[in-house]
């Protein structure tokens, strides 16, 4: 019997579905004959006593999840998400740089320094990448600091807001689509596929519209119904980051697929895995196989 730690932080738990998914994960591990227990931030010193760690809370190099990941890594304990994946995926400049290095298709992308936030530069960006443009603060999650801008004034307004949080920001060509493919990849192999249908009121998978949060629709899709080049691109993108668990977002407009982002710690609580009942079992097996 192995001991699996599931690291959670109640502060970042936002809905009942997340809790249900955590319990399902624990039940799967226990049905496989393992001892699974939830670990909270105050339990970090217990991580070295685990055989594997599955982090199920918001990850960022500056928060407690990264402490948990490093603690596991220091002691040679298999961990999802590993510290390297957190470092890369939590920072879009780092993440896109890895994708570019491995020649993975992405929208046309520019990294803009705070020193280059000038009228001349911004004009060139609109001239080169077209209108509208997408601006991203590098450490955004759940599309929180992703904005679509159509003119110079809005560009400067948004960019100045983002520059307060990061010395560099991401400027990207806008790729229109009504849905994103989400390709779940574990250890370089396909884990699940779903579609995130973008709400009509916005261009993001989650947004605040008139004070109300609107969420994307989630539809799990069997592998045979997914274009093979989309799956291949998702796996290539995940492999450009590492050997862990990733959710790769892909737009496939007119058959020209491109990766929008690679997420560590992908959500698996809203029906993403309905067509893939073995998802948690595969994760547990992957973590404890060593």
């Amino acid at each position: 019997m192995s001991r699996l730690g599931i690291f959670v932080d109640r502060k970042t738990m936002s809905n009942a579905e997340q809790l249900t998914a955590l319990i399902r994960c624990r039940d799967v591990a226990e049905n496989m004959g393992h001892n699974a227990e939830f670990l909270f931030p105050v339990d970090i010193n217990r991580i070295p006593h685990m055989d594997a760690l599955f982090i199920r809370t918001r990850t960022d190099p500056m928060n407690i999840a990264y402490v948990a990941a490093q603690m596991a890594a220091f002691h040679g304990i298999p961990v999802i998400d590993d510290p390297g994946s957190i470092r890369v995926c939590s920072d879009k400049i780092n993440m896109y740089s890895h994708l570019i290095k491995k020649q993975v298709s992405i929208p046309r992308t520019v990294f803009l320094s705070k020193h280059d936030l000038t009228e001349k530069c911004v004009t060139r960006l609109f001239d080169t990448l077209g209108t509208p443009l997408i601006l991203k603060e590098p450490s955004t999650s759940f599309s929180l600091r992703v904005e679509k801008v159509c003119d110079m004034d809005t560009f400067f307004h948004v960019a100045r807001r983002f520059i307060k949080l990061s010395d560099w920001i991401v400027v990207q060509q806008y790729v229109e689509s009504t849905y994103d493919w989400r390709i779940g990849v574990l250890g370089g192999r396909l884990l699940y596929v779903c579609k995130y249908t973008i709400p009509q009121e916005t261009f993001k998978i989650q947004a605040s519209v008139n004070g109300h949060i609107v969420y994307c629709g989630v539809q799990s899709v069997p592998e045979h119904d997914v274009p093979p080049h989309v799956i291949a691109l998702g796996i290539d993108a995940a492999n450009a980051i590492g050997n862990g668990l990733y959710g790769v977002d892909i737009k496939n407009s007119n058959g020209d697929a491109c990766v929008i982002e690679v997420n560590d710690n992908p959500s698996i609580e809203s029906g993403e895995d309905n067509c893939y009942p073995e998802v948690f079992g595969q994760i547990v097996t992957h973590l404890l196989k060593a």
Binding site: I100, V110, C121, L125
Partner: peptide, 12 residues
């Protein structure tokens, strides 16, 4: 002179 790097980082 400020310039733009495509898909890359320009570090000062």
């Amino acid at each position: 002179v400020p310039c733009i790097s495509y898909a890359g980082i320009m570090s000062p």
